[in-house]
Amino acid sequence: MAETAYWEAIRRAHDEEMARDKMVIAMGEDIGVAGGTYKATLGLYDKYGEDRVIDCPISENSYTGIGIGASMVGMRPIIEIMSINFALLALDTIVNAAAKIRYMSGGQLQCPIVMRTPGGTAHQLAAQHSARLARMFMSTSGLRVVTPRGPLDAYGMLKSAIRSNDPVIIIEHEQMYNLKEDIPEEEFFRSLEGAEVVREGTDITLIGYNYSVHLCLEAAKRLEADGISAEVVDLRALKPIDRETIRESVEKTHNVLVAEEDEAPVGVGSEIITGIIEDCFFALDSQPVRIHAADVPVPYNAKLEKAAIPHADDVYQGALKVLGKI
């Protein structure tokens, strides 16, 4: 095992896959000579050259489209979009092309691209650099959407995403790139499907994904001090969603809370709770609760920003509410 930062895990996955298969290339803004905004491709330009670690002009829609075109003829592009906000510029090629080409062609072609992008609120980056937008991608047929919570998944899911024949959107988070974890030194893969119980408990299920898993884990610790045993489920994949793991947990705890950093309407929480109502409504002892961002563009002012997004304390308070303790 080796202690590895989230960014190092991503870099390692790139490096191993690029060394193995020359069809694997990386594309994005400032990923080559500059080494990458999040260091995810640090040193790889020197190792693999400018034809495989491609510095792109600021043209998100078209360089993503070029990656998609290349993937249709056998290449495996890993496309970094510097912020998920900028991925909106590439929605046409992702949603209208990559997600649909296999289907429209009757299965003749495929678009095995990986698009990596951080979605989340960091420190006072204001409205146009703080969106989450996971809900936008999880509503699109033909995509896989995954949200690694730490280095283990960041490495193992990127490895799987590169080898998968489907277009995969990997949503990272600006607050997580320096998060460290021990991960095996030998090669491994983590499935692009399946939720995971990351902490076992019996009284309430706290469901999170990406950064909000950490809010759930912190809240679970505080709940434990109050004598409440919280189970934490990391969704890991937002498309497809693993409803079975969620159902099993809810049938055990009978209470549920979903924590998302995104705004609530038409979001991850809405989707998960609807699934719970469809799958195991009668297992519930209480009303499900969503913890989510305020329905506002993320403000610049630090106090306002703090008030706009959920924190571990909100998850803790929400859990107490679900359980009728407040």
Partner: peptide, 23 residues
């Protein structure tokens, strides 16, 4: 490699096909 209904969408796809061939 297909007909596409989003006007202008094939431009980048075509460049990607060319990139693949060259690679």
């Amino acid at each position: 490699m297909g007909g596409y209904a989003l006007v202008g969408q094939p431009f980048p796809l075509a460049a990607g096909l060319a990139m693949g061939a060259k690679h």
